[in-house]
Simulated assay, not measured.
Amino acid sequence: MTRQIRHSLTTLLAASMVLALGWTVDTTPAHAATNDFRGVNWADERDNFVDGVLVLGGLSTSDSYATTQTKADKILSGFQNNLGANTVRMPVNYATVSGSYWNSYTGAIDKATSKGMKVILSYWEGDSSRDGKVDNTSQYWSMWQTIVNKYSGNGNVYFEPFNEPHGYSDSDWKNLAAQWLGNYSGVPRGRVIISGAGYNQRLTTIGSDSRFDGCLISRHTYQFFNNSLHTKQAWKDDLGNSIGSYASRVIVTEWGAPMTDGRNYDVDADNQDDFVAFIRGVSSESRALGLGTVYWPGVRPNDTYRIQTINGSGTDISLTTTNSTGRDQLRFSWGI
């Protein structure tokens, strides 16, 4: 008997028992795990802390909507074909969303969703502040209103109110995030990703607050966050302990390490190479807990952490993988 037939018979028998015994079934969707988020960050070459308009790697402010779509199709296809990704995280800020380039920028978002990919839109503060706080409150809410108006009805678009809100106390950050939920109450909770306090690190303070029930939670982790950890197990424990009992809601939306210097991430290297221990530990624990992960970065020209490189120019571009062993560990984290 094939697996498909066994599954069908099991489902039929279960349904018959429910009807016979008069039970009711809760059909409300629930997050059993987040590992259906298999993603990478698509970033600005200058990093996403930009005072002006954000320009993702491979794109240009002179690109029309159509040209942006053509370029985006090739970059996103590279993520899908080379890595097996189904998610892309992209930055937003007021200058990008409020100006004329927004029409072109949306071409990349629209192309991703048309290819069946999830898109995480995350607010980044400007380079001149870098203080972990919203740069301008009125502009912030105006920006999000524009984004929500356009994409709240698109089930593939997810909203991350703030990237790394480290300038706020835990209480103040939670109040701001709760205000976001109140202002845009029409956005389904399951499509809102609330950053952990600090540098997206303190997750239980979000998970334990009932105001965020139903929301996803973002975790960031890098080797330089804790230079005292030197083994795969230490990094597994670091990630697992930070998540507590909220693994079913947590996505690691940033993690990365050098990918352009020939390191071998497929070999255990405890107490020999801290970056290898870090990547292997995060990958292993993410897989064990069923966490989605979004690597930093998929594409960001000249970033030594990038796992994809853009080849060619203009619309004649393609992607290649910088480190096949890093790709192995990324895919392992996804359960592939």
Results as ranks from 00 to 15, higher is better:
residue 202 R to G: 10
residue 253 T to W: 01
residue 80 Q to I: 15
residue 49 F to R: 06
residue 252 V to M: 05
residue 14 A to E: 09
residue 51 D to F: 05
residue 292 G to H: 00
residue 172 D to L: 12
residue 248 S to A: 11
residue 102 W to T: 09
residue 293 T to W: 01
residue 106 T to R: 08
residue 48 N to W: 02
residue 187 V to Y: 14
residue 290 G to E: 02
residue 144 W to C: 03
residue 124 W to K: 07
residue 278 F to R: 03
residue 283 S to I: 05
residue 200 N to K: 13
residue 300 R to P: 05
residue 323 N to A: 14
residue 172 D to H: 13
residue 43 A to V: 00
residue 162 F to V: 08
residue 69 Q to Y: 04
residue 128 S to C: 07
residue 314 G to S: 00
residue 309 T to S: 14
residue 205 T to L: 08
residue 266 D to Q: 07
residue 92 V to F: 06
residue 275 F to K: 08
residue 290 G to S: 07
residue 6 R to W: 13
residue 319 L to P: 03
residue 141 W to Q: 04
residue 201 Q to Y: 12
residue 292 G to L: 00
residue 62 S to T: 14
residue 67 T to Q: 02
residue 115 K to T: 10
residue 107 G to E: 01
residue 233 Q to C: 07
residue 99 G to V: 15
residue 11 T to Y: 13
residue 283 S to H: 00
residue 107 G to N: 02
residue 239 L to K: 13
residue 251 I to T: 08
residue 274 D to P: 11
residue 118 K to Q: 11
residue 305 Y to T: 11
residue 132 G to L: 10
residue 45 E to K: 10
residue 39 G to R: 00
residue 259 M to L: 13
residue 142 S to T: 12
residue 149 N to T: 10
residue 65 Y to V: 14
residue 297 P to S: 14
residue 222 Y to G: 02
residue 23 W to V: 12
residue 70 T to H: 04
residue 325 T to R: 01
residue 287 R to P: 00
residue 335 G to D: 00
residue 86 N to K: 01
residue 10 T to I: 14
residue 243 I to V: 15
residue 73 D to C: 09
residue 138 S to N: 09
residue 260 T to S: 15
residue 57 G to D: 05
residue 197 A to V: 07
residue 26 D to I: 01
residue 93 N to T: 04
residue 71 K to R: 06
residue 241 N to A: 14
residue 191 R to F: 09
residue 160 E to Q: 12
residue 274 D to M: 12
residue 33 A to S: 06
residue 109 I to V: 15
residue 90 M to K: 02
residue 207 G to L: 01
residue 171 S to L: 13
residue 293 T to V: 05
residue 28 T to P: 05
residue 13 L to T: 11
residue 14 A to K: 11
residue 173 W to F: 10
residue 17 M to F: 15
residue 323 N to M: 07
residue 274 D to L: 06
residue 276 V to H: 04
residue 105 Y to L: 04
residue 153 G to T: 10
residue 248 S to T: 08
residue 8 S to I: 15
residue 222 Y to Q: 04
residue 274 D to H: 13
residue 207 G to R: 03
residue 271 N to C: 13
residue 229 L to D: 10
residue 276 V to I: 12
residue 81 N to K: 15
residue 137 T to V: 14
residue 261 D to P: 09
residue 49 F to H: 11
residue 303 D to F: 05
